[in-house]
Design a protein around this nucleic acid. Structure first.
Lengths: 214, 214
DNA sequence: GTGCGGTTGGACTGCGCGGTCCAGTAGCTG
DNA sequence: CAGCTACTGGACCGCGCAGTCCAACCGCAC
């Protein structure tokens, strides 16, 4: 889904070019996370990166192309931040460890900013226009990672439910929890959301495995 | 929280004035729900309401004041749309009926737009600046309605958990589910989120009551 | 050295935005 | 009727925005 031979001409970049492009994307991602996409002007990005207007338009056709790159970058960053807990899910205890990791990440950020992907999703998905594909793909990838772990649990007979549906519910709990956490400036809603969702997962553990702590 | 003798002079409004003001708020709420706050200009509102610039500034000191009024109006509207299911919660079956109502509302909207409050929250709560008080109050009111119902269940000995925490988790499930539903253009994530959360509530029913359908 | 293409700086443009201002009208009170 | 005030219409302003353009600058190949 990246680096493929796309229909666009794909301008060749030197090492210096790639570095500049990445500087732009990371700074833009940070600004857009803090102030929103609409609240971030290209001049802001220019000032934050010490670049010039022509550079922005050299590497990106327009602002929406930059936003697309930011979305892709944030998807990778969010998934990376949950490693190795996300990919290591193989039991109810692992799931709780992942929960703790997500809460810890939000606590480190002082419950500010919410989820970068959630923020982008809320702002970019308008009623008329569809959410950018990169964003939908990002959520799908996140959900798939969760579903893989839940699938392992099911295959071992520990879990008795559809992994994809559970994963969607867990992801929603994260997003909703982070949204309320940001509004309330407290991690408490995130913890409540995750605990309730995990309790729902635990309720569907196979009887032989017995109940787990939540 | 409304109509109190606030420190601002509170200009007296005639019947006509009130009607115009309400026309502005409702149209602005609709536009901001569809295109976001930043994506809605005062000229858009002006055009949609057939009013003039001076009228907007006659009833609202500036755009942020209009946004505040929109938030308050949406809070009322969202809570109203869930009546009577929201206030009638008194058992696990009632909770499921409320779930069905929320899903139905989103299905009617073709899974577009998400929750008006969620959208406003994501856009207005920036990392630096706090979310508007009206919005935080709105979420708190919503959570309180849920907690009241859960509290009734607990008082009857049907439920064995903290109503406030459960309510926060449920609200997060709604918000996250709606966010993902909007991104995916499908009610499925919302259903998964609510089912998982309700399963978590069911898991905390008092033993004597026995498990309920989820 | 020369040539060339990726790269950079920054002035410039057109426009849409939030916000201001003032003159005019509707509608109520006496 | 007069007079007051809420209300309305619309021209206007300054600014910040996305996007354009062109001249210069590297750094590598030969």
């Amino acid at each position: 889904m990246r680096e493929e031979g796309s229909p666009v001409p794909k301008p060749v970049l030197t090492a210096r070019g790639r570095a500049t492009r990445e500087r732009i994307v990371t700074a833009a991602a940070d600004l857009m996370h803090r102030r929103g996409v609409a609240g971030t002007s290209l001049d802001d990005v220019r000032a934050a990166t010490g670049t010039s207007k022509s550079q922005l338009y050299h590497y990106f056709t327009d602002k929406s192309a930059l936003v697309g790159a930011v979305v892709q970058w944030q998807v990778g960053r969010v998934l990376m931040a949950q490693q190795p807990e996300l990919d290591g899910i193989d039991s109810m205890a692992d799931l709780c460890r992942w929960r703790d990791r997500v809460v810890e990440l939000n606590r480190d950020a002082h419950a500010l900013g919410g989820c970068p992907l959630g923020r982008l999703a809320a702002e970019l998905a308008e009623a008329d226009r569809c959410a950018p594909i990169e964003l939908v793909d990002g959520f799908a990838a996140w959900q798939r990672h969760l579903a893989l772990g839940l699938g392992r649990m099911r295959d071992r007979g520990e879990l008795d439910a559809e992994p994809d549906v559970l994963a969607a519910g867990l992801l929603a709990a994260v997003q909703g929890g982070l949204l309320l956490a940001q509004a309330a400036r407290s991690v408490q809603p995130l913890e409540a959301a995750l605990d309730l969702a995990l309790s729902g997962v635990a309720a569907q553990l196979a009887p032989s495995a017995g109940p787990a702590r939540v």
